[in-house]
Write a protein that binds this DNA or RNA. Structure first.
Length: 919
RNA sequence: GGGCGGCUAGCUCAGUUGGUUAGAGCGUCACAUUGACAUUGUGAAGGUCAGAGGUUCGAAUCCUCUGCCGCCCACCA
């Protein structure tokens, strides 16, 4: 009953119950959505790390995606938002290792692989519940019945199948090369997991020994015991005489055999223009070495210590060795120069360890290797034929270039292509224990690791566990490495849609037997922060186009990162984080969501402050009170409740016109991913037009018996539709108010009757309002004048410049009916006070009359603009008519002149029409 | 070194194909308010749209250059 609606909206009272009711209703599940839904809309939740807690990045993802999803659902689409969590191999492993060290002073090797993995899994399971609870708090309408995990049995099978397929296609290979070794995490990492840190380093210029003719510069003297060459630029005259020669030198007790080679990679202007080449410990040097067939000598091991090949430096850490090597050089008088230089130190994203390039045998995905493309029969990529030879790089570029995958905002296309251009083969094996194990087995008895029986030379790659060597029936052991976590994430859009009950070793057959996949793939939108465009977005495109011949999603929507008031990234260590969980507790999920969506545009970072959230809490309360007024101020006659809107007064015409316009704009904005604009349009209408103006007018209109019913009908009409429009932005408060919209009015005598349901019980499955053609420009113009007049009157009255009985005029067009006079009149009275501070009871005579004065201003403006245009048209006409000019000007110039001219002509005609309408 | 973005009111930001007098929220100030809401209402002040040049009848918007801030990529050893 209206009188029972509390004065202020307290989100904490309602949110949990509403969410529980939604969840119970089955409406999150597309299979149990009401009505016939032909089109689908699907989106996967970027799986939060299972060990994490909800931060503002997640909150932004949830707010925006829930907005997309609820909009789609309200528009009658078969809508799936699929949740899940990410095992985040390295991140989780590192975290648990840290805890283990802290709590028990042990490392993972102390407790062994099996025990360690168990521990990680226990930890993951516990924190999984936390993050999932927090996702619910945000109001996310995800289908929990389909929840997936990147490291569960189904996803593991998918990973193994794709691995095998890639191996069979020659895309996955095992190679021995210089990789990024993280000595702290004790694993290799991919190029994308490196973070560069600005540091200063000592650049030392020296020669290996007294007899060596070419000085070189380095910041890492200790690695020079592994040098096998000195490279110079081919055009460098200083060293031309030495190129091709080999010199013997002894450095720190190591006998070096240094060949001088010429290579384009060397910058002759840097340092001495000569580079000591260390093939084993520098990627660039390894490439030089490959070009010149130079030998490689490893002098650093996986613990970051010098190997026994490092002569006097053997056994030292790299830092100690660096000091010792420098001392050695000084002692031998070989140093020519020492200077500080700025340097970008490579560190591991997760462990922070300084990356040590080491030559190792690892698994890679070859991005430049051609393979026979296998097209999808379900949703084929346009333009790549079945069997066509393509590379992964080409496929990744192709789907974006042809617009089959659209990136919003568009400018990230460039970032994406730039990344692909520089992409090297992707190192997918990791030496950590937590993660999808590389599905490769080696024969213990006769495999390449232990013998050289011909039949066993190949690794045994299999999607299903291998128990014995197919060749010799001997025992096998699985590759100890695990896969990069992004390998499994890359399959996410389709691996989450696989039917877990199907047993098959053929991925395509599996997909064919998975109804969810058939219905919901490719997904409609992938929404995430731009910071993981390479890690995730690009990898999904790579994996999905390759593995199933489909695009993973049609649109990529990249939101900006949420920063604090000083523009810093939110982080725990800085202590500057606004905790969304706190915000929800304090201001409600709706306010938190609004603060994250309004005032932020895709791809641009946003700053968030608590004040902003508080501001939107005020708005949720405003909407609540608007509803409270509408429900309580009227008798709620059934006749009004079920009535269509009726424009009896100017104010009615105006508000219905404005609403029709707003409804249309909001729908368009949402369709175009302009969420902030959609929300702002709605807020301005709701607060500014509807609450501040129409509600005030409604108070007056309802006193007029001939207007009471239609006014109520209009209020209810707009309010109920506003709730639908607002629902994707703030689902909780709108859902709560919705209950009142459809509650029956109190029966005569005071007892409330049976709830007379009209429309669906849940707002979340109400119908998105149909577009209506009710825009009434005349009413909008007239009402604007009334508003202006009212404001003028108030100001004049406030300044006591108008006597209480003075007449103030406002001109309206002929559609004005008698009611308008009283409306304007009453509003002026309500807001005016005389100079003594007393409410002025004496009525200001506000009369609506019809002098044609106020068109003057606008006419003058239009005339001015028109004059300018006319002058232009005349001048251009002359120019274009001038054959001499045209013959001199290039064709394009003349064409663009003509186009502009035509445009100006159209514009001129429009203006003339407008002007004539005013006269 | 290469690329991308930003610079609009005190603060945070909109500004959608170039077009009336450049907008919103917060903040500030003034006024109002017993009846939907003080989590309120009305109004005001506050902007040479970073700078310079160009295209145009007309530029915050398009082009060129410059400055400052930020991000991404590369990694000169």
């Amino acid at each position: 009953m209206p009188s029972e609606i509390p004065k202020a909206y307290e989100p904490q009272k309602y949110e949990d119950d509403i969410y529980a009711a939604w969840e119970q209703s089955g409406l999150f599940n597309p299979d149990t959505l009401p009505g016939e839904r032909k089109e689908y809309f699907s989106i996967v939740l970027p799986p939060p790390n299972v060990t994490g807690t909800l931060h503002l990045g997640h909150a932004a993802i949830l707010a925006i995606e829930d907005l997309m999803v609820r909009f789609a659902r309200l528009r009658g689409k078969k809508t799936l938002w699929l949740p899940g969590t990410d095992h985040a191999a390295i991140a989780t492993s590192t975290k648990v290792e840290g805890l283990l060290q802290k709590e028990e002073g042990k490392n993972r090797h102390d407790i062994g692989r099996e025990a360690f993995v168990k521990r990680v899994e226990a930890f993951a399971a516990a924190s999984h519940d936390t993050i999932v609870r927090q996702v619910r708090k945000m109001g996310a309408s995800v289908d929990w019945s389909r929840e997936a995990y990147t490291f569960d049995a189904v996803r593991n099978r998918a990973v193994n199948l794709v691995f095998k397929q890639m191996y069979d296609d020659g895309l996955i290979y095992r190679g021995f090369r210089v990789v990024n070794w993280d000595p702290i995490g004790q694993t290799v990492i991919s190029d994308d997991e490196i973070i560069y840190k600005e540091t200063t380093a000592m650049l030392v210029t020296f020669t290996y020994d007294q007899d060596f003719p070419i000085p070189i510069s380095t910041t890492r003297p200790e690695t020079k015991v592994g040098d096998t060459a000195v490279a110079v630029h081919p055009d460098d005259a200083r060293y031309a005489a030495y190129v091709g020669k080999t010199f013997e030198a002894t450095f720190c007790g190591v006998k070096l055999s240094i060949k001088v080679v010429a290579d384009e990679a060397v910058d002759p202007a840097f340092g001495t223009g000569a580079v000591g080449v260390t093939p084993a410990h520098s990627l660039i040097d390894a490439e030089i070495a490959q070009r010149h067939e130079l030998p490689s000598r490893q002098v650093i091991d996986t613990d970051g210590r010098m190997t026994s090949d490092a002569g006097e430096l053997a056994g030292l850490t790299t830092l100690d060795a660096r000091a010792k090597a420098t001392d050695w050089l000084r002692a031998h008088g070989l140093i020519q120069k020492k200077e500080d230089v700025a340097q970008n130190l490579s560190t591991a994203q997760r462990s922070g360890g300084a990356i040590e390039p080491l030559p190792m045998r690892q698994w890679f995905i070859g991005v430049n290797r051609p393979f026979a493309f296998k097209a999808s029969t379900h949703a084929p990529i346009k333009g790549i034929k079945d069997g066509q030879q393509v590379t992964l790089k080409e496929a990744m570029q192709y789907v974006v270039r042809t617009g089959q995958v659209k990136i919003v905002p568009e400018r990230f296309d460039k970032t994406y292509f730039h990344w692909i251009d520089h992409l090297r083969d992707w190192n997918i094996s990791r030496q950590i224990w937590f993660g999808h194990r590389v599905p490769v087995w080696y024969c213990k008895a006769c495999g390449p690791e232990h013998g050289n029986v011909e039949a066993c030379r190949q690794s045994i790659v299999s999607a299903v566990p291998v128990v014995e060597c197919p060749a010799c029936k001997g025992p096998v052991e699985q590759d100890p490495d695990t896969l990069d976590t992004w390998f499994s994430s890359g399959l996410w859009t389709f691996s989450t849609l696989l039917n877990k009950d199907v047993q098959t070793d053929d991925l395509r057959a599996w997909l064919a037997q998975s109804p969810d996949f058939q219905t919901f793939h490719p997904t409609s939108v992938l929404e995430t922060g731009y910071d993981i465009i390479f890690f995730w977005v690009a990898r999904m495109i790579l994996m999905t186009t390759y593995a199933i011949g489909e695009i993973p999603f049609e649109t990529v929507y990249l939101h900006g990162l949420v920063r604090d008031e000083q523009g810093r990234k939110m982080s725990k260590s800085l202590g500057n984080g606004i905790d969304p969980v706190d915000m929800i507790a304090k201001y409600g999920a709706d306010a938190t969501r609004l603060a994250l969506v309004l005032g932020s545009t895709p791809g641009n970072d946003m700053k968030l402050s608590e004040e902003k959230v508080a501001g939107f809490r005020n708005f949720t309360n405003k909407l609540w009170n608007i509803s409270r007024f509408v429900f309580s101020a009227f008798s709620r006659q059934p006749s009004a409740v079920s009535k269509e809107p009726e424009a009896k007064t100017l104010a009615d015409r105006w508000i219905l016109s404005r609403f029709a316009r707003v409804q249309d704009q909001v729908t368009k904005h949402l369709e175009q991913f302009e969420y902030s604009s959609a929300g702002e349009t709605l807020r301005d209408f709701t607060w500014g037009d509807f609450a501040d103006w129409y509600l005030e007018i409604a108070k007056i209109q309802k006193q007029n018996p001939t207007l009471a019913v239609s006014t109520e009908a209009n209020l209810l009409f707009i309010l109920s539709r506003l709730l639908v429009l607002w629902h994707p932005f703030m689902p909780f408060v709108t859902e709560e108010i919705w209950k009142h919209v459809h509650a029956s009015p109190p029966a005569k005598g005071g007892t409330s009757g049976e709830a007379g349901q009209r429309g669906p019980r849940f707002l979340m499955v109400a119908a998105w309002p149909e577009a209506v053609n009710r825009v009434d420009e005349e009413a909008e113009r007239d009402f604007a004048k009334v508003q202006e007049a009212i404001v003028d009157i108030r100001n004049l009255r406030a300044a006591n410049k108008v006597a209480p009985t003075e007449t103030v005029g406002v001109k309206l067009t002929d559609a004005v009916v008698a009611e308008q006079a009283s409306i304007v009149h009453a509003l002026a009275r309500a807001r005016a006070k005389d100079a003594t501070g007393q409410n002025s009871v004496a009525t200001a005579n506000v009369v609506v009359y019809l002098p044609a004065v106020d068109a003057g201003k606008e006419r003058a403006r239009l005339a001015k603009e028109l004059d300018a245009l006319r002058a232009y048209v005349t001048a251009t006409q002359a120019k274009l008519a001038n054959a001499e000019f045209v013959s001199k000007a290039p064709v394009q110039v003349v064409d663009s002149m003509r186009a502009k001219f035509a445009e100006a002509q159209v514009k001129r005609q429009e203006l003339e029409k407008q002007l004539n309408a005013l006269v």
